Simulated scan of single mutants.
Amino acid sequence: MTPEYNKVHNRFKFNGIHFNHEDLSEVAYSIIKEGDPYEKELGNFLIDWLNKDDFLMVKTSGSTGQPKKIKLKKQAMVNSAIATGDFFGLQPGDKALHCLPSHYIAGKMMFVRALVLGLEIDFVEPISQPIFNTKKHYDFCAMVPLQLKHSIDYVTNIKTIIVGGSMVTKPLLKRIKEAPSRFYETYGMTETVTHVAVRPLQSKSRKGQQYFKALPNITFSQDDRDCLIIDAPNLVKEPLVTNDIVDLQSSTSFKLLGRYDNVINSGGVKLFPEQIEEKLQPVIEERYIVAGEDDTDLGEKLVLILENPSNIENITEKIKKLNTLDKFEIPKKIYALKKFPETTAGKIQRTKTLEKVLG
Rank of each mutant, 00 (worst) to 15 (best):
A345S: 14
L358V: 15
N265V: 10
F19N: 00
E274P: 01
V168Q: 09
K108Y: 07
K149T: 13
K159P: 04
K135A: 08
R206C: 06
T351V: 13
I47P: 04
N10P: 09
A114F: 08
C141D: 10
P216N: 03
L271K: 09
E313P: 09
T351Q: 14
P331C: 02
E125W: 04
D231T: 13
L325T: 00
T64R: 11
S30C: 12
D122Q: 02
G292H: 05
V155K: 03
Y138H: 08
F132T: 07
N20H: 04
S166H: 01
D326P: 00
G258W: 10
F254H: 09
E293G: 05
I176D: 07
A291F: 13
A96R: 03
R259S: 06
S310C: 02
T194V: 12
M167L: 01
Q349Y: 03
K356Y: 09
K59F: 09
S102V: 01
L302N: 00
R11Q: 15
K159N: 07
N44L: 08
Y5N: 04
H103E: 10
S221K: 00
K339V: 08
L256I: 06
L119P: 11
G43V: 06
G164N: 09
G188F: 06
E307R: 12
G258I: 13
R113T: 00
G89K: 00
H21A: 05
D247G: 12
I121Q: 06
G85L: 11
I245V: 15
L298E: 08
L248V: 09
K149P: 00
W49V: 01
V163Q: 02
E317N: 12
F19H: 14
A106G: 07
H18V: 01
L117V: 11
C227T: 14
R287V: 08
R199S: 07
D224K: 15
I152S: 04
F220E: 02
V144F: 07
G359F: 05
I70G: 00
H103T: 01
K333L: 11
